[in-house]
């Protein structure tokens, strides 16, 4: 068989240039800068910088505060991922069964998808307002003196609720299309074998949804880690104070609010490594065990 190929060896390179240059300019170049400046202590105005070796990193490792932020980020990510995936799955399974008015119902569930994170944050601010927030009043019914921006747990709860609410529609869309792509014949065969709906779901439907679920798992982890920035920034009203913050928000606070470029760069390098690990985990460990149809 004849192999198709380029006659001119420069042509493929030429065709790759647009893509590569975009990656260079928007990813490798800033990433390189971040790595470089993480080894320096810089004057905010850029008049001078001193090489400090790994100090910016050792400082993070020794900081109890940074550990606290990392812990919060971990718990926050787990909660947001778990809740938004499970609630979306529940809604998708139920919506899949709806026959009358199915389209309207689904559209209503997807609506929130169009809301931008800061807007979601603002809606959260209104719902959790200290004096007139309906959800604040709701919590008070149960004797919970909920105060956004005062209690650490209260603010964290609001952050999780808003972030989950914002993410459910995305997961819902994917789960629903995943459910609808399961062949009818498989479902009917299962129906004959087993009368229990719950058991059919876990034995047949869920494994067949695995590729979708896995893809969403990665998407949701990165969402909770990075994209909830807008929600957090709005809910804390730009004042970190004693509020819970995530690692990405701390990069912003130290770098863009505190003007400590070296320290902030070191933190962003730590995040880059985290993303790298997540990617390796995605490709090496899990993708092999999940069978795409």
């Amino acid at each position: 068989m004849k192999r198709a190929g380029f006659r001119n060896p420069w042509l493929p390179i030429l065709l790759l240039v647009p893509q590569l240059s975009i990656i260079m300019v928007f990813f490798y170049w800033p990433a390189g800068w971040a790595i470089q400046s993480s080894f320096y202590l810089q004057d905010p105005f850029g008049f001078g910088s001193t090489f400090v070796g790994a100090e910016n990193y050792t400082r993070l490792a020794e900081s109890g505060e940074y550990r606290k932020v990392a812990w919060f980020t971990l718990i926050y990510t787990l909660l947001v991922t778990f809740l938004s995936l499970s609630l979306a799955l529940l809604l998708a399974v139920k919506a899949d069964k709806v026959i009358r008015g199915a389209k309207t119902y689904r559209t209503l569930l997807m609506w929130v998808y169009a809301v931008a994170p800061p807007v979601a944050g603002f809606l959260g601010l209104m719902f959790f307002d200290q004096s007139v927030g309906p959800l604040t009043d709701f919590f008070k019914l149960f004797g919970w003196d909920f105060q956004l921006g005062v209690g650490y747990t209260d603010t964290a709860t609001a952050m999780v609720i808003v972030a989950v609410w914002k993410q459910i529609p995305v997961n819902f869309i994917f789960f629903l299309s995943g459910l609808q792509s399961i062949p009818r014949s498989v479902r009917e065969a299962a129906l004959i074998d087993n009368g229990s709906g719950t058991q059919r779901f876990w034995d047949i439907t869920f494994p067949l949804l695995a590729p979708t679920a896995f893809f969403l798992l990665i998407i949701n982890i990165t969402y909770a880690l990075f994209d909830t920035f807008g929600v957090i920034d709005t809910l804390v009203k730009g004042e970190p104070g004693n509020n819970p913050v995530t690692l990405v928000y701390k990069v912003f606070i130290d770098g863009f609010r505190g003007n400590d470029l070296g320290g902030s760069s070191a933190q962003s390098v730590v995040l880059m490594v985290l993303v790298l690990i997540l990617t390796i985990f995605q490709f090496r460990l899990l993708e092999r065990r999940i069978h795409y149809t």
């Binding site: 505060e65 005062v150 209690g151 650490y152 004042e239 970190p240 104070g241 004693n242 509020n243 606070i253 130290d254 609010r257 505190g258 003007n259 400590d260």
Partner: peptide, 21 residues
């Protein structure tokens, strides 16, 4: 210098003091 960060540290600890943390 870095007083914006110092204020953030104050706000954080003051909040913890006043909420009994």
């Amino acid at each position: 210098g870095f007083y914006v960060q110092i204020r953030d540290v104050m706000n954080r600890e003051y909040g913890r003091i006043l909420t009994g943390e």
